[in-house]
């Protein structure tokens, strides 16, 4: 099947099987390996991408579902060589260790800040519940999201 969608701001087309997963489409056909396979069954959040701005698990999403819609991956977040404030905050706060959870974590955090530009620490922790990190204990991640929120508020 042929699908057409917007990927990181660009119109793209792809030939997919009815059972092709979005995660595999992104990683194998578009070579966007920022979305990670951590479990394949919707438990870890490492495969998170944004579909029309909403965080979704690409390991549980069929590629055909994105036809005519807009997908943003971590590779599409930084504009013109400028890091997104969340990316910068993750770096500066030491919120990245092995980095395997990072793309999914940042994209989920982006959706949070769009919904709620000034979240409390508890709201951040609650919202990120579906994204597992085995390295950081989430402390610096929560700090980074808070910092990015402050920065984005100006």
């Amino acid at each position: 099947m042929r699908i057409r969608f917007k990927l990181n701001g660009r119109e793209v087309e792809a030939e997919v099987e009815p059972n092709t997963l979005l995660l595999n489409l992104l990683r194998e056909q578009f070579h966007l390996t920022g979305a990670k396979y951590g479990c394949g069954i919707g438990e870890c959040g490492a495969c998170t991408v944004l579909l029309d701005g909403e965080p979704i698990l690409s390991c549980l999403t069929l590629a055909v579902e994105v036809d005519g819609r807009e997908v943003t991956t971590i590779e599409g977040l930084a504009g013109d060589g400028e890091l997104h404030p969340l990316q910068r905050a993750f770096l500066e706060e030491g919120a990245v260790q092995c980095g395997f959870c990072t793309p999914g974590m940042i994209l989920t955090a982006k959706a949070l800040l769009e919904e709620n530009p000034n979240p409390s620490e508890d709201e951040i922790r609650e919202y990120l519940k579906g994204n597992l990190c085995r390295c950081t204990g989430y402390v610096n991640i929560v700090k980074a999201v808070k910092k990015a929120a402050e920065e984005m508020a100006g």
């Binding site: 966007l32 390996t33 920022g34 977040l77 890091l83 993750f90 990245v96 980095g99 395997f100 990072t102």
Partner: peptide
């Protein structure tokens, strides 16, 4: 100081063996 592989990691460009 930010980790030196950090930019690659926050932009999804870091290469893991699974990539």
């Amino acid at each position: 100081t930010p980790r030196m592989d950090g930019i690659a990691k926050v932009t999804g460009q870091e290469v893991y063996s699974s990539d």
